[in-house]
Design a protein around this nucleic acid. Structure first.
Length: 447
RNA sequence: GGACCUGUGGUGCAGCUCGGAGUGCACGCCGGCCUGUCAAGCCGGAGGUCGCGGGUUCAAAUCCCGUCAGGUCCGCCA
């Protein structure tokens, strides 16, 4: 059985090639499976467009009641899952790939209800209620093809550079960072918490001598954040590497990963992304621009924007202005903002030797959106312990973590990257919900 | 958590200021016509507790109060 389908609206697809070539010289009997995309009924001929994940093809049928498939055809509805047999013939009149299948038999594997609850015009929230129907649209498939390519590119690079993949637990006894955004759940006679980050466990891998690790996995944030770029569960791309000199080494790994991933997506789907989402993918040059947090503040203030926050950090508007400025100056969509004040960072970020008020840390902005936080970590036990206590962290809750640094630990650092935020910018979508397979937010646990 | 916005047939909207019979548009659905469409076309039809509750009024989708649901931005963050 073949799922070969001609492809007119997805020019990057290769499935059509073999089919059309075979039809050049002779017709071929084929069996294809797919969803009914459209039905156009005329008095003497019926056109059906079938679609599967490889593309779409037109099927021609006769509405005559003596056809073996007459009853099935009569009841056929858009969305139904069908298996069709017929002759594949080349026909230049057909706009969909120049080929069609002249139906000789059909089995409706599963009928669809005729009236769908969503259309192309339906609001995102309602489409998310019927995510499995929404995902049948080719443009949504493209999102997940792009996601697959991004992860594949990352993994290729990691494999080539000797990274170890880890799968850290998502059930934890206590907070890894602030504790304020943790989901608590019953755990036998007590409570457990869902991991908001693999932070401590990937650092443990450094103490374990793994050298370089990565993890692509879920993280949970109990923030009631009602924005287009937040969710309560999302996929985080985490990296941690040993024997670094500074956070600069971490940034070099990350920019290389992103350059590679964007290159792969552009090569594989660039034309399709441009056609479907109207955005062209720019493969960024190395190195990415870097500005310190203090420089970033000055740039934003010089643009005439008064920072609204009292703690001195950049608010979203400031981040957009900074990105815009960097893009104007350098043509680059990415910018590393480095050397954040210690007051804005978690206790485990290493501070500068010469200026302990500043950390060896960075955020990465892409088109004005924060997609990463990274840093060199404090690996010296007594310094780390002092910084934890100064931050008001309860020692008994992090003692297991502090233990990692009591028996020798290399200088190390890493970052966490929001996978859906990358896809959102990459594909010029306005909402992480669109690029998340099944979005989870304060108001959504279904489907 | 704060500010603002939106709830009207299956879907997307208009109607709301200035109250007057559930009025209208597009898509979808059902039926009919039509040898080739490809955003098919033409004709007909069904489908509604105007989110919910209360108030004002002779009369409320429309004005007022409350409530519920959702969205956008901010805060928080990736």
């Amino acid at each position: 059985m073949s799922s070969l389908v001609a492809e007119a609206d997805q020019p990057g697809n290769q499935a059509a090639t073999g089919t059309a070539t075979a039809a050049d010289t002779a017709t071929a009997t084929v069996t294809i499976c797919g969803f009914v995309d459209t039905i156009r009924r005329h008095s003497k001929v019926v056109f059906i467009v079938l679609r599967d994940e490889t593309g779409a093809v037109q099927v021609v049928a006769s509405p005559r009641p003596d056809e073996p498939y007459a009853d099935q055809l009569d009841q056929l509805t858009v969305g139904s899952a069908v298996t069709v047999q017929g002759e594949l013939v080349k026909n230049q009149i057909v706009k969909l790939g120049g080929v069609e299948i002249q139906m000789s038999g059909m089995v409706v594997d599963s009928f669809s209800e005729a009236q769908w609850p969503i259309t192309d015009e339906t609001s995102l929230d309602k489409r998310l209620d019927w995510r499995f129907l929404d995902l049948r649209k080719p443009e949504n498939l493209l999102i997940f093809r792009a996601q697959t390519a991004v992860e594949e590119a990352f993994r290729e690079l990691w494999a080539a550079e000797g990274f170890i993949e880890i799968h850290s637990p998502k059930l934890m006894a206590s907070a890894s960072e602030t504790g304020s955004e943790l989901f608590r759940l019953e755990y036998f006679d007590g409570y457990a918490y869902l991991a908001q980050s693999p932070q401590f466990y990937k650092q443990m891998a450094m103490a374990a001598g793994f050298g370089k690790v990565f993890e692509i996995g879920p993280v949970f944030r109990a923030n009631p954040s009602f924005t287009s770029r937040h969710d309560t569960e999302f996929t985080s791309v985490d990296v941690e590497i040993s024997w670094i000199d500074s956070h600069e080494d971490v940034m070099r790994v990350e920019e290389k990963m992103l350059q590679r991933a964007l290159g792969v997506v552009k090569e594989r789907y660039g034309h399709l992304v441009e056609e479907v989402f109207g955005t062209s993918i720019t493969v960024p040059e190395l190195p990415f621009p870097r500005v310190t947090h203090a420089q970033a503040r000055k740039i934003v203030e010089d643009s005439g924007y008064r920072l609204p926050r009292t703690d001195g950090d950049l608010d979203p508007e400031a981040e957009r202005r900074l990105s815009s400025h960097i893009a104007d100056e350098t043509g680059h969509g990415f910018v590393f903002v480095t050397d954040y004040p210690a007051t804005l960072r978690p206790f485990y970020h290493m501070r500068h030797e010469e200026d302990p008020e500043l950390t060896r840390s960075y955020d990465l902005l892409w088109n004005g959106l924060e997609i990463t936080t990274g840093a060199q970590r404090e690996h010296r036990y007594s310094v780390l312990r002092d910084q934890a206590l100064a931050h008001g962290v309860k020692e008994d809750e992090v003692s297991y973590y502090l233990d990692f640094f009591r028996f020798g630990c290399p200088p190390h650092g890493g970052f966490g990257l929001g996978l859906t935020r990358i896809l959102m910018i990459l594909l010029a979508r306005t909402n992480v919900r669109e690029v998340t397979y099944l979005y989870r937010g304060p108001n959504r646990l279904l489907p």
